[in-house]
Design a protein around this nucleic acid. Structure first.
Lengths: 109, 109
DNA sequence: ATAATATATAATTATATATTTATATATCAA
DNA sequence: TTGATATATAAATATATAATTATATATTAT
């Protein structure tokens, strides 16, 4: 009877990574780690629809990866923590070095 | 005519994060960053089915997050790069500090 | 060569998730 | 207060992905 010994917290951690694991959300995060941006600016820079961006931003906010403040009718978002940037940078390095084969990965599109 | 100015490489990067964004795969990666493990050991320690583990390991190998070597009828896997561990550790820190709200995130289960 | 063990594969099924669509709310300007 | 602008929400739809199931391959021992 083999015990299931998955480290506690793994589910939460994988959920955190889901914030980075969608192309749309990651492109939003990459804008947010550069600094402040309004929803409209994000819509413009990503080419995503406004409701889609809002849905993703809510997700990122609830998860604690982004923070928001209202300024008149605009709402500004930014990355919550410098480690958001660090994680993305580490991924870039990995991609450049070890993970070059990723575009061949057939498991997901 | 707003140009779509998503940074090149974002799609590949988000794909890389998908390696970490599934609970089963992350629990496998957490075993692999500790060191060598055979498929059977991973099956035992995670409680996942053997084909499921093999499918995930193929995914992780193709993406360059894991390396394998055959030793008789066993195949040993390990993390490909120390940055795999670093990324997981950063996520742990983020989770402890900024991303506490993640279990409330309604966007995904 | 045959059986046993270890792992891989691939089609199917089940499920999770992204995106759109339509609409609602909030703020400002006139 | 009415209209315009900015953002949010939520249901519906479309799509992607995980897990299972059944089977195949590879290695070793007898």
């Amino acid at each position: 009877m083999p015990a299931i010994t998955v480290e506690p917290g793994t589910e939460l951690k994988s959920k955190l990574f889901r914030g980075f694991s969608d192309g749309s959300r990651l492109s939003i995060l990459e804008i947010l780690v550069e600094g402040d941006a309004t929803v409209g600016e994000i819509v413009e820079r990503t080419g995503l629809s406004q409701p889609n961006v809002s849905n993703h931003l809510r997700c990122l906010s609830e998860c604690g990866l982004a923070l928001s403040r209202r300024d008149g009718r605009h709402v500004h978002y930014r990355a919550s923590d410098s480690r958001v940037h660090e994680i993305i940078q580490l991924a870039e390095e990995l991609l450049a070095d070890s993970a070059k084969g990723i575009y061949e990965c057939t498991r997901y599109e």
